[in-house]
Nucleic acid binder design. Sequence first.
DNA 1: GTTATAATTGAAATTGAATTTCAATATCAA
DNA 2: TTGATATTGAAATTCAATTTCAATTATAAC
Lengths: 146, 146
Amino acid sequence: MADAISVFRAFLKKKGLKLTRQREIILKAFIGTEKHVTTDDLYEIVKKKKQSIGHATVFRTLKLMCESDLATSLNLDGKVTRFEHKYGHEQHYHLVCTKCGKFIEAVDPEIERLQQALAKRFSFKVTSHKLRILGLCKECSRKKRR
Amino acid sequence: MADAISVFRAFLKKKGLKLTRQREIILKAFIGTEKHVTTDDLYEIVKKKKQSIGHATVFRTLKLMCESDLATSLNLDGKVTRFEHKYGHEQHYHLVCTKCGKFIEAVDPEIERLQQALAKRFSFKVTSHKLRILGLCKECSRKKRR
DNA sequence: GTTATAATTGAAATTGAATTTCAATATCAA
DNA sequence: TTGATATTGAAATTCAATTTCAATTATAAC
Ligand SMILES: [Mn+2]
Ligand SMILES: [Mn+2]
Ligand SMILES: [Zn+2]
Ligand SMILES: [Zn+2]
């Protein structure tokens, strides 16, 4: 947490930007949840802390957090963009149920390794990846069978 | 091609829909390109064949093609939705250059296998996946070093 | 063939998330 | 202080995605 703040502070400094009160509130609110939030989700959380923060500031701060690799954006449903932690979190995949919307997070070092090897074959320098596996969760595939 | 048309026809029939002249033109235009098209891209292609086709029909037909698994949607740039062939094409990944936008398509049977194994651990029934590897292409990573 | 029924179409309107504008305010260095 | 620059939030704008709707067309029933 304190760590994330200093990362953000360093990033902002390098860009000639300031860690304002609003940005700090937004960052802390984001760090404080493990959810995959939309800008609106985060806006709602933040408003409880401080009445007078605007959507625009939340949006812009989320963008800055992505640039600084504290956060990353993802899309689970093909509609809204969501944000999740990146700093201090392992890159992972999302197994998304197309029926109920629930999702599972997973990692696999072997898949990671093979992705790197694949990229190498194309002299492609990987910075990140987004893997979404679509299908039916345990519960939904059981229901469907009946 | 003829094959894809019969798949589409069968799908439509099952849903009580008709293979109209417009739908056939749109389908053929889509089959006829190997590009990753936006609805507008396809609309432009189709307009050359038949002056009087509307955006809405292209959009709706593309949706039907996805439902029938002839096509699949993807997002390369985080902005527009694109469509590519699915029927008769292997599921593949996109290595997208964040600098120049170019992308490479790739497959890896081993990665596929591991994804299935991963899903199985969660009793998750996979229908498809979307893997996008982000980074710098050969050319762009060379330029950057200089 | 005539008529009823349902599907289709395309122009235009609408939606809604994402993004920008702008005038007011805050911050900071000289 | 003073000037330059960054920040903010309400509101406006953008733009792809989607829907509406009245006109048209295809299909089925008589
Ligand atoms: Mn996650
Ligand atoms: Mn492709
Ligand atoms: Zn489910
Ligand atoms: Zn490139």
